[in-house]
Every structure is written in structure tokens, then in C-alpha cells.
Amino acid sequence: MITRPDDLPEEELLLSGTRSCAGCSMSLMYRTAIKALGKNTIITVPASCLTVLHGLYHKQSVLVNVIHTTFETTAASASGIVAALEALGLDEKITVVGFAGDGGTSDIGIQGLSGAAERNTNFIYACYDNEMYSNTGTQRSGQTPYMAYTTTTPHGKLEHKKNIPMIMLAHNIPYIATTCASYPLDVFNKFTRAKQFKGTRYIHVLAPCPPGWGYPTHESIEIGKLAVRTGIFPLYEIIDGKMFLSKESEPYLDPRKRLPVADYLKKQGRFKHITQQHIDTYQEYVNGQWDFISKML
């Protein structure tokens, strides 16, 4: 486990000059994650912002093997890579990782993900969650939070976010983690730890999106940290079914230490229309989420 920025490996597998937006936290998350994964990795990516980051034919902005797959088939594609590596006797040497967005994971891709996890396919599935279909112009996804504006929920989404990590827990897989792009050391450590397990490993990364969420590009790190400090997005690991709260989230088990959700919501354009009643509903939801977590620990 590393604890300081300069402990991160110097070698960059993400090459400068990518096609991602300024201040994109997915780009930061990806840069950090592939440092942990290393070159002996085959990554599979569905239609998503990450496809754009990888660049237009015939150039690529990363130094790892990538198989682009269709929107709903990240985990199926990974299953094929894993089976091929097993057939070739290379599965111990090469790590297989699926990187998909929140829509590709929790909506269109959940069937393939569930199937691959049920088969305990030997791969890491990482969902970078920007809480909307950012790549197609910010439409509502199953990960869009309550009351967030998207182009298809112009008055705010009426439902809460789908809890994918808990759905993955129901698949009895050996490793589940949540992390946030704003904490690169945590991202690095969790991908490093995931690599040590065999079977399906699931990592859910909150990845704030400046154009989609409506905040200035320089605030990407701060917004993600506020999601953690308000308790909206708890960071934890679940190892063989047992939950461990990550140190970034540990203080917020105590409700008095959590910042009010309004501190997070009011910094983002996507929530600018919300009322005090909505904020109260949101706060209740977050409190309930922690009641559940406290029972899991």
C-alpha cells in the first residue's frame, strides 16, 4: 500500500495529449489505475467516454492492449479474453480488465456483468461512474442520483442511484471496492489489491464530470472529496463478503462528522433547481445508507 504521491510509479502508460475533456476525472482515474495494472494487461472498453480518451484510429493514447467492444458486452468480452488466455496458458501472466461507464455497467451491461461474475470469471471489472451518459451528451442513467438534472430529466431525476456494489456482493465474488478519482492513492492501492485476487473483482470509481455536473474544471478533485466527506459516496472494500471502511470514509460513520449534503449539491449546476425539501430527502437517503453500512461492518 502506498501513502504518498511520489510513491506512485513514474512510468506513464497513459500518453499525453488525449481526447478527454479538460479536468476529466475519468482520465485521472484511468491514468492511476493502469499504473497499478501494468503493461501485462489486456483492457476491454465499451462505447463510452473512455473510447474517446483512447483516441481515433490509427493512434492510441495508452501503452496497453485494448479491445474495444460494444456498449453492453464489456464483461462478455473480458470473459472471452480470459478463456483465450487460459487456453493459451497465459492467464497467470496477463491481467484482464473491463473498464466501463456507469450506463455500460448498471444499465445496458448488467446482464453480461452478472453472468461473468456468476461464473467467477478471472478478471477485474471497473466501473467509472460519472452518473450519467456523459459521452452521448449527459442523459439519465441508473447511476444518476436523486434530483440531478440530465438532458432526459430536465426537472431532476425522481429516483435514487442504483447500488451496483451491493448487487455485485450478491454474486459472492472475492473482491469489491469503491473508490473515487479524487483519491489517486486509494485508486492505485485498490487496483493493486484487486490484482492479487483470483476470480471476479469489482471496483466502482466515482468520477466527477465537469461538463455533465456543471462545475469549473479545476474543482474535479474537490467535488469528489465532497462526495466522500458528505457521506454521499462511501469508500470501502468487501473482501470475501466482509466490509472494511476505507480510511477516507472512516470518520463519516459518525453522522456528526459528515458535511451536510447541501455543501456538495450546491456546488453543481445539475442540482441548482433543488428545494430544501429535496435536500432533506437526499440527506435522509444518505443517513439511511450509513445505517445499512454500519450493519455491514
Binding site: T69, T73, A76, A78, I81, G115
Partner: peptide, 17 residues
């Protein structure tokens, strides 16, 4: 696999590998 969609998607990647 859990669907034909996944059957062909997995084979595409297995072949590519």
C-alpha cells in the same frame, strides 16, 4: 454465457486474443 449476445462478444475477444 448468459446470452447469445455475450456468446459472440466473448468469441470476438477470444479470437482477437
Amino acid at each position: 454465457v448468459e446470452s447469445e449476445q455475450s456468446a459472440m462478444a466473448s468469441l470476438i475477444s477470444a479470437s482477437t486474443t
